[in-house]
């Protein structure tokens, strides 16, 4: 009990003695965590959105004339021979018109003066999940264009490709901000601790002469680093959560966030970021302790 009380008291003393530097370090750790967590949050949400979009991929083959009931099995076989599909839906002109009318809801009156046959018939092809690779979708799309009466194929693969590129770019940003996080935490905490050690140099010398153990001298310094990691990451994550709440309340309905189902980190990820910050800051402390304290 006395041991713990001394260690905690000594840690408090260290923090008080170099409070200005401690505050700056805390701010740096907080901003580093906030920056990293912000990009990581966007990245994970984009990954989830991409996964959802990928699950909903369908290829629409627009035709210049209706497909008769007799022709359908032959087309289904042809498409099935090229690649495995989940289902194939034939949409007539009338069905397309009915869908559009339903989508417009109360605004469907705008269709009153139009010919119900003005929309082209189409075939909707839903590939199986193992065919969701973008290059395969593209090949499938090229094949579908060779079907009889096909005039255009809409696959959304270009959009998905661009989305994929954006996600890759975001991955690089997350990697860079993560590296910044590691560097800033390890080095800044290490530097701060060095200042603590230097400011207490004469005291540490005397403590050594009085028989202070390694634990008595080193543990408070190690605890100081751990505390910086814990508080810095807590403040950083709390700031990110407030930012998220603010964005969520401003764009809640209807809009971008609903479209992408923007969500905050699950508890495991939050805990992992906290833990990683504590470990990094402790490593920074350990580095300084090993380098500057000879006991």
């Amino acid at each position: 009990m006395h041991f713990l009380s001394y260690i905690l008291r000594q840690t408090g003393k260290n923090l008080r003695q170099t409070w200005g530097t401690q505050l700056l370090t805390l701010l740096t750790v907080t901003l580093s965590v906030l920056l990293f967590a912000f990009f990581f949050l966007i990245y994970t949400n984009m990954l989830n959105a991409g996964k959802r979009l990928g699950d909903e991929v369908r290829l629409i083959v627009y035709l210049d004339q209706e497909i008769t009931e007799q022709m359908r099995p032959e087309l289904e076989k042809k498409i099935g021979d090229f690649g495995p599909v989940d289902k194939i839906v034939f949409v007539s002109r009338n069905e397309a018109f009915a869908r559009m009318s339903a989508q417009l809801g109360q605004e469907k009156d705008v269709l009153n003066d139009l010919d119900p046959d003005f929309l082209p018939p189409s075939i909707e092809v839903y590939p199986l999940k193992n065919l969701k690779d973008l290059s395969k979708i593209s090949q499938f799309s090229d094949f579908l264009l060779t079907l009889p009466h096909a005039t255009k194929v809409q696959s959304g693969s270009d959009w998905l490709r661009r989305f994929g590129h954006f996600t890759n770019l975001l991955r690089v940003v997350v990697f860079l901000s993560g590296s910044l996080l590691i560097i800033s935490m390890t080095f800044i905490v290490s530097y701060t601790l060095r200042l603590t050690v230097l400011s207490r140099q004469s005291e540490l010398e005397i403590l050594k002469l009085l028989g202070a153990t390694r634990a008595y001298i080193r543990l408070p310094l190690l605890l100081e680093g751990m505390l910086q990691g814990f508080l810095g990451s807590s403040f950083g994550l709390a700031a990110l959560y407030l930012l998220y709440q603010s964005i969520d309340s401003h764009f809640s309905n209807p809009g971008f966030l609903k479209l992408f189902d923007f969500a905050f980190f699950p508890a495991e990820i939050t805990a992992a970021i906290l833990l990683a910050s504590i470990v990094l800051c402790t490593a920074g402390s350990l580095f300084s302790i090993r380098r500057f304290i000879r006991i």
Binding site: E203, G211, A212
Partner: peptide, 20 residues
């Protein structure tokens, strides 16, 4: 570590005091 434990049992009053 043994030296440190031993120092806890030895009191030394230095000529130059070594006070803070």
């Amino acid at each position: 570590a043994g030296i440190q434990r031993m120092r806890q049992k030895i009191g030394v009053a230095y000529q130059d005091f070594r006070l803070l």
